[in-house]
Design a protein around this nucleic acid. Sequence first.
DNA 1: GATGAATGAGTATTCATTCAT
DNA 2: GATGAATGAATACTCATTCAT
Lengths: 219, 219, 219, 219
Amino acid sequence: MPKQTFLNLPDEKRKIIVDAAIDEFAEHGLENASTNRIVANSGISKGSFYQYFEDKQDVFMYLITVLEHEKMEYFKGKHPPSMNMDTFGYFRWMIKEGMQFNSAYPRLVQAISRVMFGEGLYYQNFNHIRERSMQGLRAMIQQAIQNGEVDPSVDMDLAVMIIETWSNAISNYILQEGMKQKDIMKWVRSAKVQERIDKMLYVMEYGLRKTESDFEKTF
Amino acid sequence: MPKQTFLNLPDEKRKIIVDAAIDEFAEHGLENASTNRIVANSGISKGSFYQYFEDKQDVFMYLITVLEHEKMEYFKGKHPPSMNMDTFGYFRWMIKEGMQFNSAYPRLVQAISRVMFGEGLYYQNFNHIRERSMQGLRAMIQQAIQNGEVDPSVDMDLAVMIIETWSNAISNYILQEGMKQKDIMKWVRSAKVQERIDKMLYVMEYGLRKTESDFEKTF
Amino acid sequence: MPKQTFLNLPDEKRKIIVDAAIDEFAEHGLENASTNRIVANSGISKGSFYQYFEDKQDVFMYLITVLEHEKMEYFKGKHPPSMNMDTFGYFRWMIKEGMQFNSAYPRLVQAISRVMFGEGLYYQNFNHIRERSMQGLRAMIQQAIQNGEVDPSVDMDLAVMIIETWSNAISNYILQEGMKQKDIMKWVRSAKVQERIDKMLYVMEYGLRKTESDFEKTF
Amino acid sequence: MPKQTFLNLPDEKRKIIVDAAIDEFAEHGLENASTNRIVANSGISKGSFYQYFEDKQDVFMYLITVLEHEKMEYFKGKHPPSMNMDTFGYFRWMIKEGMQFNSAYPRLVQAISRVMFGEGLYYQNFNHIRERSMQGLRAMIQQAIQNGEVDPSVDMDLAVMIIETWSNAISNYILQEGMKQKDIMKWVRSAKVQERIDKMLYVMEYGLRKTESDFEKTF
DNA sequence: GATGAATGAGTATTCATTCAT
DNA sequence: GATGAATGAATACTCATTCAT
């Protein structure tokens, strides 16, 4: 985690550094990111960089906390449109809001997913982060089971893996297409894109949802 | 593509070099792979490396052809168990055989998927390879539509993207878990794993398959 | 142009580096100069070199500015001996002073002319420098025409080319012979050498100068 | 000098190698020429190269003999147009023929002059070659003195240097401009170019020629 | 707390030459 | 006589990190 010196910095200066770092990781990943370029692009000195952060990875770790923080802020003000929504409905709502969040911070999201999926799988350091989000999913599925929406005999690990994979796939897909657009936020909100997200989610939902006869075969 | 010099090498020496390269790409990806380490680990000289290959990417390209070659060899002797199998059944068979292939060449597969998914998204050079496999999928879906297994109004691009993503997800998942096992080939063949693969595939299949009433909503 | 880092260096250290660079370019030209040798001979580290300069060519460009600066300093205190001197007389004076300057900085001059004539013809990068000096010559010839010293119908491009070539030839000749001497500055100042320079200049002067009858044939 | 093995080669093969070498030296000079590229472009093996030549410089030396040989062949069939021509007239004729020769072998001439002037001045190895051509000039001037065309008190070394420098300058100038033309041979033969060469030569001639009053000052 | 110069090991790639076949 | 694989030092340039000021 960044040192106190960094956290004491005026907001504006901190933002410049963070933006430079986001750009660097988005373009080059973690292993290939250059601290030289980060300091050059943010206008701070080499010495300051190492007074703010332990090392390159430390910066990246900080970006993760930034993402988590922004996401929390974003969702704080949001509430599912209807009270009596089943778990899948809730998940669908969440994913779609997530896509809108992503379109608000596309570079940051891009930077982090590039590293997490490209290099993270082979590094140990990010396991705890993945673990945290998986626990959230697990709780959601438990809830769905209690609601009778998902068969209690479901293979929990598998379901988590499926949902995680699928969410990421959708997120990646939307982000990649979205980066080609002029106004990504507007594009994501468009009916066409929302419909596409729906379709992708339905595929997973149909597969996971409790169905009378076929279910035994699946889970 | 590697130069003739390399192809003329005795099998054993070539294997040592290929193995060193596989290890390097598996551990570091393409951008971060070090030719220095490759030559050090394979015991050849710097000069020889560049007498064998055009450059770093050339080695990687060669690994891809190796993978493709091995896969072709592997599938040459294999035939679907039953003649009257629907498209999904065929796809299921193929994926499962694919998993067994992967378990026979886990490092090679790991090296290549690491690069293709980690960096490939951001590099142009691999587009044609992805394109080739996507055309295969497209043809398979066309077949399924002709067989009446999939609704003709399906959104083809979307379906291809779903199948591609899902196959890769399964492959990744199995590989990752499998690398933790003592005997990965045996593990993949075990009933427990095969059942898991089935379940994952069913999720997608249910989502994509033509169902009476729900289908309109999906595609 | 060199980075600030270099300009901030203590004079002595800067001189060591500059001298090493001069030697390198004088011995090997630009294309074949080795940054490795420059850093080795100046006792700085690889990293420092690139903290001082953009690249190899940057060092050379700096040497050019050094030469220009020194030349300006040298000529600042000098004035033509007589007020009523014709253009050729002025040019003769300038060349002779130039030779004395060259004998004060023989290695630097050698380094730069070696590159400019040896490689410059084939590289584009030095065109603007040559252009600058050629414009000076052009102005001087214009002056000579206005003074009635040179026929107005003269082929200007040709005249410029002749003077440029000739000046360089003299400069080269003197430098080459001079490098064999113990005390080059003293040697250049000697009556014998000054007389030789005069003779060389007269050849050109006679050729260019307006003469009654023969002129039509020439220009 | 090339080894006997090279000289035994069939003409055609030898020509291919020579052409590849000419290109290489013309583009890169001697120090930067790459034997690797020469063998690659001529289709011979690395081993053969070193069975034909001692080393890189040996190839270049051979090119010089090729140039000398071709020049001799070219001039063998040529004779000055008039018997009673003075030395300057003879020299003028020779230079103009030389320009035509150059335009017949522009790459070869370019390759050699690039090296001789760019690097040769600083290398020892080419001294004997320069020396040979200077002796020719010296003899020509002696002749001119005997003919009473040049004052006997002339400074011989100086005159040689002037003529050598000037010839090279003209040659360089013509070659450089000529390389930009479509048909260089035709261009050189054109009246416009011939006139320009004349003018350049006259400048030197006027300077050197014995003139009544001014001469004492010059030589 | 901020600076930025210093560093040497690192990068990918090319070199001229040798020598066993 | 021809071959071409092998080599290690060479090339220009970048790296993350330290540390004295």
